[in-house]
Amino acid sequence: MSTDHTNPNQSQEINQNEQASQPVVGLPGDERDVLISRVIDGVATSEDWKLFRAAAAHDASVWAELAETQQLNEMLSTAVDRQLAHVDEVHVSGGVVDDQPLRARLDIVSRWGGWAAAAAILFFWFFGNPVQITQSNNSSVTAGLIDTGMLLDQAQPDQAFNQYLDAGQRNGQVIGEMPEHIVIETRPMADGTIEVLYLRQVIERQIIDHAYREIFDESGNAVPVPIELSPNLDTRF
């Protein structure tokens, strides 16, 4: 069995990684690994099988290693197949990418502002202002603190956040907070509890007197281009 490398540079790279190989009774680590791989992949020759049987006669753990590697390989193939499940749905029919799923997501992002504002208004209409709800629910605990203008550095995070929402709504900068929080990560803790990282989404509003559209030059660099704003035109970004 040969594991020669024809490219000297690649050979050097491989040899550096060979340091991790473990010496194994009967066959050198690499040869044993390659032999097991060939058996798993169904490309073992009769000579390979002879070597394999001889190694197994000398060290029965070769069989266990073969079984374990084969099982891992099957599980990995299953997982890769699962990852590639929708790959065949991406086409380039007529030289144009059929990117419906991607466009659908981008559409959601581009409509986000309007949709989010509408959702916030609906939310207020049905359930009232979430800030007021929070304040009234916690009135027994926080009564007097926010109304008296508690200093932010003395407030609890929730109290400070509510003050920001309240002040923002008064001057029109804050439209409201989205009712749903986006979970980024959950992490099981050793004591049986679960740590949850999440995003709170606040919809803000800004009035601007000038705007730029970002375009890309032939090198792919982003270039800001001023947009002419006119009250008579339906200017979209």
């Binding site: 024809t6 491989i14 690499d30 690994d33 791989s37 798993i40 590697t69």
Partner: peptide, 14 residues
């Protein structure tokens, strides 16, 4: 080379 691929797959699995 094919031999390098074979060795890398074998080592990768180990």
């Amino acid at each position: 080379p094919v031999t390098t691929i074979e060795t890398r797959i074998a080592r990768g699995r180990r």
